[in-house]
């Protein structure tokens, strides 16, 4: 149960004089949810970007299932098995819910070079998309234009599109962002069940969700990991309390 699926080794990213990521090495193991928390500006988004391929680190590597993916593009990393959700929903707003999920299926099956048969008439693509939609509870909304979805439904669709990829590891950037208490609870329950399928690297501000879900938590402050441990260890850590939790408590 402790195989490392996703790993960063010594990532460093500087923007001028600012070191946004300072020697960050974290790993994500089979079956776990590993949460990364930290105050605003700690470098969480920069870290995610480097893992997913949007930013090239100055130093360090990213490994997915033991393979160095540091040189790969975002698209190639997604194909290699990295399923990502965005902090601010990045969906095709003009398209319907089903089309958005089918887009994921097209990516997953490498079908984007088929120029002939209708995508929505291709059994394999639609079945995969519908299965993912059903899991997040959007099966009834398949015909709805994405722009007409509620904020919470868009968050669900983000996750559904990632599910169509059947990834080896999820990287989720604040999946609870903007969800109400009820929605947040539902999403927490859903992610709880998802970890057995593929481990989740979770960046989240909702501390209730983090402490309910995370097997391990890493605390990022000024680009540096100051502590990694179980929820209890993090709660007990004086350094973490000083740097982060203390501000809110």
């Amino acid at each position: 149960m402790s195989d490392v699926v996703l790993e960063t080794r010594g990532l460093v990213k500087r923007f001028g004089a600012l070191t946004a990521t300072d020697d960050v090495s974290i790993d994500l193991r089979t079956g776990e949810i590993h949460a990364v928390i930290g105050p605003n500006g700690a470098g969480k988004s920069t870290l995610i970007q480097q893992i997913c391929g949007g930013l090239v680190p100055d130093v360090g590597q990213v490994f997915l299932q033991g393979r160095d993916v540091s040189g790969l593009s975002t698209a190639a990393r997604a194909q290699a098995g990295l399923g990502r959700t965005f902090q601010i929903s990045a969906l095709c707003m003009e398209d319907g819910v089903l089309e958005n999920a089918v887009l994921g299926a097209i990516g997953a099956q490498g079908a984007s070079w088929r120029c002939w048969r209708g995508a929505l008439r291709t059994e394999g693509l639609v079945a995969r998309a519908e299965a993912a939609l059903a899991r997040v509870g959007l099966a009834d909304q398949r015909e709805v234009r994405c722009a007409n979805l509620s904020h919470g439904q868009r968050r669900q669709l983000e996750v559904a599109v990632a599910l169509t990829l059947e990834p080896k590891a999820f990287v989720m950037d604040e999946p609870m962002a903007g969800l109400g208490a009820e929605g947040s609870k539902e999403m927490t329950a859903f992610l709880d069940g998802l970890r057995s399928e593929a481990p989740i690297l979770l960046v989240e501000h909702d501390m209730d969700a983090v402490f309910a879900l995370a097997d391990r938590i890493s605390v990022l402050v000024y680009g540096k990991i100051i502590a990694t441990g179980t929820a209890d260890e993090i709660r007990a850590s004086a350094a973490v309390r000083d740097a982060y939790l203390g501000e809110e408590a």
Binding site: C52, T74, A76, Q79, L91, E94, G104, A108, G110
Partner: peptide, 14 residues
């Protein structure tokens, strides 16, 4: 999809 959101397209491996 690429026209509407390039980030989305890349995230699904396109």
């Amino acid at each position: 999809g690429t026209r509407q959101s390039e980030a989305r397209a890349q995230a699904v491996g396109l």
